[in-house]
Nucleic acid binder design. Structure first.
Lengths: 337, 337
DNA sequence: ATATTTGGGTAAATGGTTTTACTCGAGGAA
DNA sequence: TTCCTCGAGTAAAACCATTTACCCAAATAT
């Protein structure tokens, strides 16, 4: 009763060796007689035995543990991502071990070290900025576990990456506004130099260019991927004659909605708004947000599948782009006049 | 270079014993000369040594790992909870290992087993239902790690619990509506028999009773803690002459908002709405939601502090209630006429 | 001159499990 | 009789770090 039952206790109970116990309990090919087998299983149940995972990990050199490193759980996108990850990890016998970086590259590096020291079998990394890219180039091979970059790719790194085509998504969003007849379109971005923001901005610019629309002055505003940014930048958008705004993620759009409510700016009558991510909330808010869907849940599921393949079958690295799709809802309409 | 550097490699490099290496690297009291010490530290850095945590855990009998078991991450409340937990766990050298139960008691039990087998040092459990209570009574002592019940207490269990006073919160919310002059008040609940829902309903009933207000027919509607429930139940509320509704959590309120938007029901002019939780979104939505604040972030922080105390100092068990506070915002006003 | 301390270490046990390479006796074949 | 095989197991090494109980020579104390 004191302390945990070990394999030795069962050996003592059954009068057999630990080898036999291990063989039977792990269903390894063995020559243990049926009666012994029965006694072992009985004793294991009776003593409520389950193997010490530390010991198992030590000899098997794997922990059945996957690190998931993300910038910030308050962004609902990551909540859904984790949910997706967990939904495939657990059925496969893996547990998710969580690390949040608060968008701090130093903390991100730290987290990678500390989780790898824990002996995770693989790392799902959503990097918050490309500044560590060079460090990672040397680091990943040294750490000797598969890495999968999730949602934000960094080129040239020796690892797989699973991400939506951010540029295309942004292009789609912007073109939608253009097709509605908007000409003065603003863009509220996440942080300059953040993994995905620059690519989305590029998609925005490209769409404008392709439509021969000049960029207004201060059309592109930089903040971060939070509702606060949307709220803070909203006035600048409202007061500069823009008829539409492309928010680089839904959280930004939600912040802007809030300020719009306070100022009496009507969406979409006075201002069309497009978001990015299609977080669960987009359909809850009023008017429902037109946005670019990238299913965080799917991304989570796929990234875990991917990393398990690399862990268990040394599958080769792969870069996968998912297709974003534009979800037209009620926050966009043709401009007035 | 092949495989990970072990303590033996450093012993070989420095010509010292593994004992010395361990002593120096862990800064244990020792009598190693300065020059040897220097050589050890040098070699450790040069070879990029970090101890195998499996081995360390095996001998120290602790994993510096805390399990956090929650019903459902899509509820933003839990996103914020985890964020709070992580924010204190990591600085203390603990990692969070995640388990989601989808509100399924069987899965919850399973998760507890599987995470304990992993050798977590403690478990933060937000149980989704009291049905397992009796099982837990026997189980917790057997598992021999501290448990802390988070947000949803179960009486009589041999463990600590940290929770907001759900009944009082519900009472506050309901009284607020009553004080505004509402008499026909509906209540959309989470699942019958879910940990907290019944208590909140009780608070609702008590407030009505104290104000000598009779409960309308079908005043209490049961669903679950999701926006879908709010959406699905909305019509029943709109069409039965209620002037106010108390939603048992914010997600439900958000769902109801959505349906209200579709139906043209104005909040608060046609219907006052109060939520519960004060999830980050409550202030983003329009009109800002009047709700009962229970800071998930704080709860996360406190629960980790608590469990670390129990892990490291065998602190005695404790039941803590936090005071909820009513946040009056724009979704409530006196009834028409 | 002898006893004691101190400086600078180390050997070996421990933790719990898996796995490889045996052992041993009985029965059958040649 | 000798050789093999088969059934039913087992001893011991390996995984990696920590920790306890020592060791030995030189310096100091008495």
């Amino acid at each position: 009763m004191r302390g945990k039952t070990t394999i030795k206790d069962i050996a003592r109970e059954t009068g057999l060796s630990t080898t036999s116990i291990s063989l039977v309990l792990n269903k390894k090919p063995n020559k243990i007689s049926d009666s012994s087998r029965r006694r072992i299983i009985d004793a294991a149940n009776r003593l409520n035995y389950y193997p010490n995972q530390q010991a198992v990990s030590l000899v098997n050199r794997q922990t059945k543990t996957i690190a998931q490193i993300i910038p910030d759980i308050s962004n609902m996108f990551f909540g859904q991502l984790i949910q997706g990850s967990d939904s495939v990890a657990h059925p496969h016998g893996y547990s998710l071990i969580l690390g949040t970086t608060n968008n701090d590259p130093a903390r991100e590096l730290d987290m990678i070290h500390s989780l790898c020291a824990r002996g995770v079998d693989g790392v799902l990394l959503t990097t918050s900025s490309p500044v560590n890219a060079r460090v990672y180039q040397d680091l990943f091979p040294k750490l000797d576990v598969p890495f999968v970059l999730v949602d934000r790719a960094l080129s040239l790194l020796p690892c797989s990456s699973l991400t939506y085509d951010h540029q295309k998504g942004a292009y789609l969003a912007t073109r939608h506004l253009i097709e509605l007849g908007h000409k003065k379109i603003a863009c509220i971005s996440g942080a300059h130099k953040s993994g995905s923001a620059d690519i989305r901005v590029k998609g925005f610019c490209l769409a404008m260019e392709d439509a021969c629309l000049p960029l207004q002055q201060n059309a592109i505003l930089y903040g971060d991927y939070s509702d606060k940014t949307g709220y803070d930048m909203a006035d600048a958008v409202f007061d500069s004659g823009f008829t539409a705004v492309f928010c680089l993620n839904d959280m930004i759009a939600f912040g802007l909605y809030k300020r719009a409510g306070e100022r009496g700016v009507r969406i979409p009558a006075d201002l069309s708004v497009v978001g990015f991510d299609d977080v669960a909330f987009s359909t809850l808010i009023n008017p429902a947000l037109t946005t670019v869907r990238q299913s965080a849940y799917e991304l989570g599921r796929e990234s875990v599948k991917r990393i398990i393949m690399e862990i268990e079958q040394q599958a080769p690295r792969q870069t996968v782009y998912f297709e974003p799709v534009l979800m037209v809802r009620n926050s966009t309409c043709p401009p007035k006049n």
